[in-house]
Design a binder for these strands. Structure first.
Lengths: 238, 238
DNA sequence: CGCTTAATTGAACATACTCAAAATTTGTGG
DNA sequence: CCACAAATTTTGAGTATGTTCAATTAAGCG
């Protein structure tokens, strides 16, 4: 599991989709970043970095989805965030000068590059716009963490699960039909995302299914009534 | 409330205590930052900035303590962080390019400077060390938010309250006796910090008092048994 | 096809919340 | 300085909600 193997990701601009960080770099800078990258395949379920490890680089996801989790004292796992192609991983610990405080695990087979942190820092000083983008990303991370924190503290289980489904929708989007989530998680992962016990997540999902808000077929989840789902996710107690 | 009035804070190096952000600036740079600062007094209870406001500068606390809170849908308030002299306020929204997502309120009479964001940005590009320090601060904020989030989700009320008291201890320290917290909060504020109802906070505090871990005399809180307090704060269910 | 893991359902239980009332503290004006 | 009003703090009781534990069913995989 998690064996590194030769790949063929030519340069970092292969990851410059949408408006991710890489897009803020010139072609030359992308090439410079590419120079020292290490490519690796992580099989589904394998760990990319682990809580307590010391970071010595940054990860950039070329292909695949990743979950980042924190282990709590009581043995529960909290999904802190999910990441997909084009996103950078492990920057928080690096910038904070700390060990990793969360564990990153491949949700499916992934192709991930490890970037040189020195090269990354060089680009940050050379490219103020790039620097600003990173600052912005971190500042948004703070907000999201604070939002989820306060949200989960106040909301009932159904609202939390609804919110978790909406997160999946916004993050990964849907299939061509516009309603089938294009990510497949275990019930446990959904529970860990919503911050509830798996049984509670299952019961909440069943409820949403019975209400016609979601369509469940095993791990395939369809959003049938977006409006109601959003409504539910906002309410204090559903 | 919150009236601005003339003060006499000569330059920003008056705020360079300990190892806060200002310390990373040269004397000349501190002077440059001072040039455009607006001084203001905020009376106890007055609002420094409000959720939804658009930031047009940064605040630097010269004197006094501040609470930063988020209002939840159910009308509860969550204390997101507390700040004291020498700390910068309102940078998250600025760097994220967003409106404020929390409200800052003076816990006691405060003297606060408003700094020019343009000047601040200039210093960030001019001084890479300063830039790094800000990045580090944001990255640490992310961790703290994520830690508290997951902690509060898993811990029982007593552990949360114990954690809240420890936060106060670590942030503001004690009087000369080494045990009396040098910050005075309402029970509601302690509850909002711990993320529990005020009645629950009171009951937990009473328990800690009865156990001889804390000494309560109205708003004056003494830590009598640090070891037990730390123990309790870690346990899943106290 | 058997075995292991994941998903589901059920029931008892614990915990913190809500609502309500009493007690205490704080602030203010006479 | 006292008396009164307002706000805060404290205590109590009932309730809702999610957790835990256990058992069953379904699904994935060699």
């Amino acid at each position: 599991m998690g064996k590194k193997q030769a790949l063929n990701i030519p340069t970092c601009n292969a990851c410059a989709n949408g408006n991710n960080l890489i897009c803020h770099l010139s072609h030359g800078q992308q090439a410079a970043l590419s120079e020292f990258k290490l490519e690796a395949v992580f099989r589904k379920g394998s760990v990319i970095f682990r809580e307590g490890d010391r970071p010595n680089g940054l990860f950039c996801i070329h292909k695949g989805k990743v979950k980042v989790t924190k282990l709590t004292n009581s043995g529960r796992e909290q999904v802190v965030r999910l990441s997909k192609e084009g996103e950078i991983l492990g920057y928080r610990a690096l910038f904070a000068g700390e060990e990793y405080t969360a564990t990153a695990t491949a949700l499916e087979d992934c192709e991930i590059c490890q970037l040189s942190k020195e090269r990354f820092y060089e680009l940050m000083t050379a490219n103020p716009e790039f620097n600003r983008a990173i600052l912005q990303m971190l500042a948004q991370d703070v907000r999201r963490a604070e939002d989820t924190w306060t949200d989960q503290n106040q909301k009932g289980a159904k609202a939390r699960v609804a919110e978790a489904i909406l997160y999946l929708y916004r993050k990964f989007g849907t299939e061509a039909d516009g309603r089938t989530l294009s990510v497949s998680l275990s019930r446990q992962d959904i529970a860990d995302l919503a911050g509830v016990a798996s049984e509670t997540a299952i019961r909440s999902l069943s409820f949403l299914d019975a209400e016609g808000i979601l369509g469940l077929e095993g791990k395939v989840i369809r959003i049938l009534n977006m409006h109601s789902l959003e409504q539910l996710s906002v309410e204090h107690n559903a």
